Amino acid sequence: MAEAPPRRLGLGPPPGDAPRAELVALTAVQSEQGEAGGGGSPRRLGLLGSPLPPGAPLPGPGSGSGSACGQRSSAAHKRYRRLQNWVYNVLERPRGWAFVYHVFIFLLVFSCLVLSVLSTIQEHQELANECLLILEFVMIVVFGLEYIVRVWSAGCCCRYRGWQGRFRFARKPFCVIDFIVFVASVAVIAAGTQGNIFATSALRSMRFLQILRMVRMDRRGGTWKLLGSVVYAHSKELITAWYIGFLVLIFASFLVYLAEKDANSDFSSYADSLWWGTITLTTIGYGDKTPHTWLGRVLAAGFALLGISFFALPAGILGSGFALKVQEQHRQKHFEKRRMPAANLIQAAWRLYSTDMSRAYLTATWYYYDSILPSFRELALLFEHVQRARNGGLRPLEVRRAPVPDGAPSRYPPVATCHRPGSTSFCPGESSRMGIKDRIRMGSSQRRTGPSKQHLAPPTMPTSPSSEQVGEATSPTKVQKSWSFNDRTRFRASLRLKPRTSAEDAPSEEVA
Rank of each mutant, 00 (worst) to 15 (best):
R20S: 13
E22G: 12
A28D: 13
R43S: 15
L48P: 09
R72S: 11
Y80N: 13
Y88S: 14
E92A: 14
P94L: 10
P94R: 10
R95P: 14
Y101C: 05
H102R: 07
I105R: 03
I105K: 04
L107S: 09
V117E: 08
N129S: 08
L132P: 11
E136K: 10
E146V: 05
E146A: 04
I148L: 03
V149D: 10
R150P: 09
W152R: 00
W152S: 02
S153P: 08
G155V: 02
Y160N: 06
Y160C: 04
W163S: 08
G165A: 09
G165R: 04
R166P: 09
F169C: 03
F169S: 00
D178V: 06
F179I: 08
V183E: 08
S185P: 11
S185W: 09
A190D: 00
T193I: 13
F198S: 01
A199D: 11
S205R: 03
M206K: 07
R207G: 01
I211F: 11
R213L: 11
M214R: 01
M217R: 06
D218H: 07
D218A: 09
G221R: 08
G221D: 05
G222D: 12
W224R: 00
L226V: 01
L226Q: 00
L226R: 01
L227P: 03
L227Q: 00
G228D: 05
S229P: 03
S229T: 03
V230A: 13
S235I: 04
K236N: 03
E237V: 02
E237D: 06
L238R: 00
I239N: 06
Y243C: 03
Y243D: 10
G245R: 07
L249R: 05
A252V: 08
F254I: 03
L255Q: 04
V256F: 02
Y257D: 07
L258R: 09
E260A: 02
E260V: 03
D262V: 08
D262A: 04
A263P: 10
N264S: 10
N264K: 07
D266V: 03
D266E: 11
S268F: 14
S269F: 03
Y270H: 04
Y270N: 05
A271P: 10
D272A: 08
D272G: 06
S273W: 01
W276G: 02
W276R: 00
T278P: 00
L281V: 02
T282P: 07
I284L: 02
I284T: 05
G285A: 05
G285R: 02
G285C: 08
G287V: 03
G287D: 10
D288V: 01
T290R: 11
T290P: 02
P291R: 01
P291A: 08
H292P: 04
T293A: 04
T293I: 02
L295Q: 05
L299P: 00
A300D: 01
G302D: 01
L306R: 02
G307V: 01
S309T: 01
F310Y: 04
F311S: 04
L313R: 15
L313Q: 05
L313P: 12
P314L: 02
P314H: 06
P314A: 00
P314T: 03
A315D: 04
A315V: 09
G316S: 07
G316D: 15
G316V: 01
G316A: 04
I317L: 09
L318I: 14
G319R: 09
S320Y: 13
S320C: 00
G321D: 08
F322S: 10
A323V: 10
A323D: 15
L324P: 14
K325R: 05
Q327L: 08
Q327H: 15
E328A: 13
R331G: 00
R331L: 03
R331W: 10
K333M: 06
K333N: 07
H334L: 12
H334P: 00
F335C: 04
E336G: 02
K337Q: 10
A342E: 06
A342S: 09
L345P: 10
L345H: 07
